[in-house]
Structures are given as C-alpha cells and as structure tokens.
Design a protein around this nucleic acid. Structure first.
Length: 271
DNA sequence: ACATTGACCTGGGAGC
DNA sequence: TGCTCCCAGGTCAATG
C-alpha cells in the first residue's frame, strides 16, 4: 500500500519512540513474509539500542551497533507505536518491545512486506544496492532521466515506476505526476522530449513533497505510526477517479492497464 | 540489455 | 446471506 510519502510519514511518526530506545524483546508470530524473517533477527536485536532510523527507497533501516534491520511494508503493511499492553490482533506479525514500555507493531495482511537483518552496510544489501536515485535528490534530474530513457520503448508510466530508474514512485503518484506534467501515461519513454522530462521531473518531486507534507495518502488502511490517516487523498486528480470529471477540463477521467497496473489519466489534458 | 508476465497473499466490494 | 470474481498502495524471478 505505501509509496514513498507513506513510508516517510511512517518513519517520522515512529522515530521519536524508536531512536535511542533499547529493545527489550521481539515477538515474531509469522515468519512467512515476502522473504522469510531470519532466525538471527531476535538474537541480533534484543538488548540493543536503535541508533538511527533511515529511509532508502521504500525500505526503513533500523541501525544498531551490531547491524541493521531492514523493513519493507509491501502492499498492505503498517507500523504503529503502541503501549506494550495492547493485545495483538490478526495479521500483527511482529512486535518489537522497548524498555520504555512502548512497542513497535508490524501488521501486514497480505504478507508482501519483509523484515531482514544484515551485519553489513544495508545499502550494499542485494535488495537495495541496485536501486536508482532518490526522487527528491539532486541526482534525479532532467539530464539523468532523459539519458536513461533513450531508446526505451516502455510506457513512460512503467518507466518511472521502475526502481532501477528512480525509487519511490508507485502506482498512485506515477499517475498523479503524469497528470500534472500533461503527459499521456502510455507514451513510449524513448520518444518524449527533454522539455517534457524537465516538467515530469519537477512534477514527480512536487507531488511527492506535497504528499509527504499532508502525511501521505490513505485509501483504505494506511496510518502513520500514531494511527492517524494521511490527507493527500483529497489532492488526487486522477487516481481512482475513473469516469469522474477532470479537475481541469471537466471531461471524464479514463482508466487503462499498463504493466498490469491500473492507470488513470485525462485524455484531454494529457497528450 | 530490455520488456513482459507470473508469482507471492489476504480481504473487501460488486454483482448475481 | 452467500457465492464468485475482480481488484488492491510492491517488486522479484523467470521468460522471450
């Protein structure tokens, strides 16, 4: 469920309760996630202090002196900070209990999330080391994206959702950024002009930044670390709005499938 | 190297 | 009510 703004929102929500805290215990109820939860996790984390919390792409990195826990929320995962007396419910797969009396609870109905451990630099981990630049960094700019796009026949929307090209642009914000840039999602990436890429890069950055400011997008079940929803849903121009009027021109929003993903756009505003 | 497709898993909503 | 079908915010592996 979460894209970059939702992961960033989660990070901000939990950080005050996690960073500088010592892990008292870990309860793992389900190991069968996207990747098996390693048996070393409990022994590695117990009695250790969380030194810092970072985000890379949609991964959250919990650094300790002995290594790093790598967490991904998948499609339906969320993290909440709760009082350690709150009973667990269905799909609450992992609890990280702190000496403070709080716990960090990972819930993930679809089990596409992951929880891993590494003793090395997590940025060198095989799931992370091949990833493209952060969308909000200077490294992600017009020249970069234009150069990478040459000779590529993929639809532009599929292209910007490829994490080797740029991370953090998921199905919602890909549609939204393309709407803002006035680019039809099905255009071939290699046939788009430098000027259009300039606009697209700008819109990807602004739509993600605005979504972070609003606490992400809550469609069904996204909540920040304190159980509050995100308010960016109100700002969505096309996502999930098939047959509704375009906010700019009033014509009906269309839905198509690209790379097996629902894609929303306005055929009048996006050429 | 690039493009496309299937796979993982559960729940919710639409339609009958 | 209850069944079936389709959809869902991600991303890796396998296949041309």
């Amino acid at each position: 469920m979460p894209e970059l703004p939702e992961v960033e929102t989660t990070k901000k929500g939990i950080a005050p309760y996690v960073v500088g805290e010592t892990v008292k215990d870990i309860i793992i109820r389900e190991r069968n996630l996207r990747w098996p939860v390693p048996h070393t996790l409990k022994r590695s984390l117990k009695h250790h202090l969380i030194r810092k919390l970072k985000r890379r792409a949609k991964y959250l990195l919990f650094y300790t002196d002995s290594g790093c826990m790598i967490l991904h929320l998948g499609m339906s995962g969320n993290l909440r900070v709760l009082d350690s007396t709150v009973p667990h419910e269905k799909h609450d797969h992992v609890d990280i209990i702190f000496e403070s009396g709080h716990l960090l609870r990972f819930r993930d109905p679809r089990k596409f999330g992951s929880l891993l451990w590494t003793n090395e630099d997590p940025l060198e981990h095989k799931l992370i080391n091949h990833l493209g630049p952060e969308p909000l960094s200077d490294e992600f700019n017009t020249e970069y994206l234009y150069a990478r796009s040459r000779k590529r026949t993929q639809a532009i929307k599929t292209f910007i959702m490829d994490s080797r090209i740029v991370v953090g642009v998921g199905n919602i914000y890909a549609s939204e950024a393309l709407f803002r840039a006035g680019i039809k999602p099905s255009l071939q990436a290699g046939k788009i002009s430098n000027a259009c890429y300039a606009k697209l890069v700008n819109k990807i950055k602004t739509v993600l930044s605005e979504a972070i400011e609003k606490g992400g997008t809550t469609l069904r079940d996204f909540y920040n670390g304190e159980g509050k929803p995100g308010y960016f849903s109100q700002e969505l121009n096309v996502y999930n709005r098939e047959d509704e009027p375009c906010n700019k021109c009033n014509k009906k929003i269309k839905m198509i499938r690209l790379g097996q993903r629902s894609t929303f756009y306005c055929s009048y505003c996006q050429k």
